[in-house]
């Protein structure tokens, strides 16, 4: 089969072609599928780093500072910077480039801004595919900067090999961080704006949370105190979680603390690639991805198979309280299972 022109151009390093393909991926164009298939064998080489954390912690500045350092090490860097879509208009202001001005003239850097848009699961899927395109295009490192909160972050952590969670002093008490649930996905915790008052406190409380929340630490804790709650045995093959996330301090705008951060990233990458961890983790991610995509594909086919008049009648019944949502689902499922899916094109 002759290679698709756009795919060939992307592999040859044509930036315009790359930008166009990224748009097609983001817009979920049908012609994208064979292109992603063709690029897939070229993926798996880039180190993918996720950067997440609450708004205002300085993620963009940190990405900028990190990218500059990586460039100094002769590594090529692609950046995906995600900003929220307005739920009211569907539009977005994507302003992460403002903090990345210093990278603007560099041919070894490619920055792409991305809006969260609306679709459920769509962002994670699009991000994953865009990362793959950038990986196939030959970038050494792909930095993915995310919006800052919620399920999206967890999804993106599954795309990245190393996830940085960025905090800043004075953004509220540490319980907020636990609630947000993003500490669990951190491979490295960064307290940015560390020249501000309260930085040490933030570092201390994060360290405490990491240590008490960590399976390995829990094990030690229990052994030390002997009679604490019994520690459940770690499930087999769970050594992936035995990485102890370091808590580091940076001042991104002044390039402070970046050497330590880069060292920690390198260390984590090494950890990742040592032993059987990388295969175990990748297998798990691939399984998750497969189920997610299956879910989306099934959902799409299912909705297409439903007669619209049945859907509106069902909705009306629920609205009138004559039918509850769960029973409605049963009815709809039965309908499709009895009459089947329309034959695919």
């Amino acid at each position: 089969m002759p290679m698709d022109k756009l795919v060939a151009e992307v592999l040859a390093g044509n930036r315009r072609a790359l930008a166009r393909l990224l748009t097609q991926v983001e817009n979920e164009r049908p012609e994208v599928l064979p292109r992603l298939t063709a690029l897939f064998p070229h993926t798996g080489r880039a180190h993918i780093i996720g950067i997440t954390g609450a708004p205002g912690t300085g993620k963009s500045s940190l990405v900028n500072a990190l990218a500059k350092r990586l460039r100094a090490q002769q590594q090529t860097v692609a950046i995906i910077a995600v900003d929220p879509t307005s739920p009211f208009s569907g539009g977005a202001i994507l302003g992460d480039r403002i903090r990345m001005v210093e990278l603007a003239g560099d041919a070894g850097v490619f920055i792409r801004s991305m809006a969260t848009r609306g679709s459920l699961g769509g962002l994670a899927r699009a991000t994953r595919d865009m990362v793959r395109v950038l990986d196939a295009a030959g970038f050494d490192v792909v930095l993915v900067e995310t919006v800052g909160a919620g399920q999206n972050e967890v999804d993106i952590a599954r795309t990245a090999q190393t996830t940085l969670v960025v905090e800043a002093p004075g953004l509220g008490d540490e319980v907020q961080a636990i609630k947000a649930g993003i500490l669990e996905i951190a491979d490295i915790l960064v307290v940015n704006k560390a020249d501000r008052p309260g930085a040490l406190q933030t570092v201390r409380s994060l360290k405490m949370m990491v240590e008490t929340g960590h399976p390995a630490a829990r094990e030690r804790f229990a052994a030390h105190h002997g009679r604490l709650l019994p520690v459940p045995a770690l499930p087999a093959g769970d050594e992936v979680s035995l990485w102890q996330p370091p808590v580091l301090q940076t001042v991104a705008t002044e390039n402070t603390g970046l050497d330590d951060l880069l060292a920690a990233i390198a260390q984590h990458r090494q950890f990742w690639h040592s032993g059987s961890r990388v295969t175990q983790l990748q297998e798990r991610y691939i399984e998750i991805e497969l189920y997610e995509r299956l879910q989306q594909a099934l959902m799409q086919r299912f909705v297409q198979a439903l007669p619209p008049e049945l859907v509106s009648a069902t909705l009306q019944q629920i609205r009138a309280r004559r039918l509850d949502p769960q029973s409605a689902i049963e009815q709809l499922l039965n309908q499709v299972e009895t009459h089947g899916y329309p034959s695919s094109r």
């Binding site: 208009s89 539009g91 302003g95 480039r97 403002i98």
Partner: peptide
């Protein structure tokens, strides 16, 4: 409803 990239 547009996506606006603002560069500063």
């Amino acid at each position: 409803g547009m996506e606006v990239i603002y560069t500063g």
